[in-house]
Nucleic acid binder design. Sequence first.
DNA 1: CATGAATGAGAGTTCATTCAT
DNA 2: GATGAATGAACTCTCATTCAT
Lengths: 202, 202, 202, 202
Amino acid sequence: MTKLELQKKKTRDREATRQKLLHAAVKVFATQGYEGATTRAIADEAGVAEALIQRYFNGKQGLLNASLKDFADFEKLSCSNLPPPVPTLDAEWKSLLLSAVENCAHNKQNLNVAMSQATFDRNFGRSMAKFLESNRAPALAERLKKHVADGSLPANTDLEALSHGLALTMLGIGYLGQVVMKLDPKMIQRIVTALSKAYSSK
Amino acid sequence: MTKLELQKKKTRDREATRQKLLHAAVKVFATQGYEGATTRAIADEAGVAEALIQRYFNGKQGLLNASLKDFADFEKLSCSNLPPPVPTLDAEWKSLLLSAVENCAHNKQNLNVAMSQATFDRNFGRSMAKFLESNRAPALAERLKKHVADGSLPANTDLEALSHGLALTMLGIGYLGQVVMKLDPKMIQRIVTALSKAYSSK
Amino acid sequence: MTKLELQKKKTRDREATRQKLLHAAVKVFATQGYEGATTRAIADEAGVAEALIQRYFNGKQGLLNASLKDFADFEKLSCSNLPPPVPTLDAEWKSLLLSAVENCAHNKQNLNVAMSQATFDRNFGRSMAKFLESNRAPALAERLKKHVADGSLPANTDLEALSHGLALTMLGIGYLGQVVMKLDPKMIQRIVTALSKAYSSK
Amino acid sequence: MTKLELQKKKTRDREATRQKLLHAAVKVFATQGYEGATTRAIADEAGVAEALIQRYFNGKQGLLNASLKDFADFEKLSCSNLPPPVPTLDAEWKSLLLSAVENCAHNKQNLNVAMSQATFDRNFGRSMAKFLESNRAPALAERLKKHVADGSLPANTDLEALSHGLALTMLGIGYLGQVVMKLDPKMIQRIVTALSKAYSSK
DNA sequence: CATGAATGAGAGTTCATTCAT
DNA sequence: GATGAATGAACTCTCATTCAT
């Protein structure tokens, strides 16, 4: 057994315990909501003592903040990890929608926590908007630029608005359709295809 | 005042109190969430005694159910109240998106309550999906049909999927963009315009 | 049964419940100290639900404040209820010490609460001093004045200081000796007599 | 360094740590009270790990016992360290009161801990009384004896009671007046002088 | 031996609900 | 029928103590 493995087996490992709590928190917040979640349930899920929530996160609210931070980090990452560019507009549109579907599925717990927070906390809603405006939309606009250049989109296209619209469509399908309403995955695929095709219709 | 009139007045008062509570509940549930809302806050908002929640709605949960019923009724109504048809596809698209923006703005409290419920209650999420599939999407498909007929949309268009996609886009912009993220109304307009245009680009 | 008696028997009587809690609190604070007392113990002692402490006193701290207010009221009263004046200095001294012993015995729970609070809360200690300076000592000085006039006390007696000293002696015997150390009542009497005599010795 | 020296050093360190904890405990108990003090606060004040309280004192209660022992030792010492005798009764009285003021000021933390303990622990209150009766009062009586002999005090003076009264007066001024109420030091001096003079008035 | 991670019991408080008036 | 006093369960958080390292 290597030293690293031994390290991993320690029963008193600050960071490991912190992570156990954080993951449990995201899971419980995602399914019960912040107010509906109890610290007891989170601690049980993590398999550690409830008191450690105070020790490591300064209470339930701190645990929520840490969860939201997690989400923000993931979102930032997903902006720089867009799928590779493709030549035609409808293929691009499809590829981006599909990656959103993928991302939302993968990150659905964090999404639930964040969206719920955005719903009930004015400030968080606004900071989510800011992120959309400063990060997500610009990254998408960058992708769509060349389709204006090659004439697939009109020269006077409002790229900023279009990329916002695309981002919201991504969330509409990936989050509302897939995560919240739990639409059949096949239907999700058909929706993505249908929308993409509609964009290339003459 | 006759005995009958007295009876009627009483009934009216009962109903008035019930409505006061229901409206207060929607407001408080919408801003605090179900778990975050207290029966005390709701009663205060309604200006009546807390105990009446038990009497009239059989408790907090009953009040939520009544609130959700309210939302469902509104949604059903909005399906039969779509804006008048317009000849071109992009105008149709724009008109539908705009009506969604309008609807969501008018109904944002109920939307918050319902979306939050859908997030944390598997069954409610599914019933929302069912409504989308059985009511909303068919109503939209009906609208798009003629644009297939006139060639604006390809003959092999998956109308069912496209109308689902449109419905989710409407929610993405009207609810997530407008209500949750509180995007600037001007930006919302630009988004609607940009998306609509993109769908008619050659 | 008179209406008043019926009133007293009400099982839901705001003021009566408040008083039950307040008395229980003084008793428990007096025997366990503020920190040592639990709201559960106080509620049990009062025979009512713990939650009423929040309702009526805004929490444990509020209950303490109410208890201290009780004490302050009693103290104010006791200043205006000094024993009747007597002609000789040693009789006066004895009478005042005896009344202090009596008062402290009667009010020992409140005294415990207040003294403990004074010990650990700088501000309360100071406000107790202020009370001594502004109320208690002046009241005693008033009593001693005539003994300066009749020559029992020297003309240049520092009456302000002497009355402070008397007040502290009263507390030393009545509170520390009697309440805290629980000296034998007979010994308390002997102490009072001995001290009084010493003041008239030639 | 020899093994023996190492051993000695270790012992010194052990003892030093114990003392650090003990002093920290007295300080924290004195300002927060026993129940209000947390082992964490004490350990922080001492600059050592919380767990050492268990090791060295067998828990928080043991730390309190050790603190009280400290106080008892000091008290015993102070009985044999009375100020030098003086010829006149009023000078004696003043000298003893002044020494009490001095002692209380020096020992105020221990006094706070002990008095608080006496207030809430019947047994400790009684053992304080026992100490008063067996040590403090006899020591004072010894001092006052000669003033009976020289006629400053009546022949039939109840010396035992008078010395008890003096001891309580000393605490009344030195502890209650000075430590608890934090009376102005100048006022304390005036009180001592006024009381002493009152004892020599004809 | 000292550390600090971990624990469990219990603290004060909140809240939906019940019930006497 | 409406009120608000009363309740008990459950919540978050604190703290003395235990124990692996």
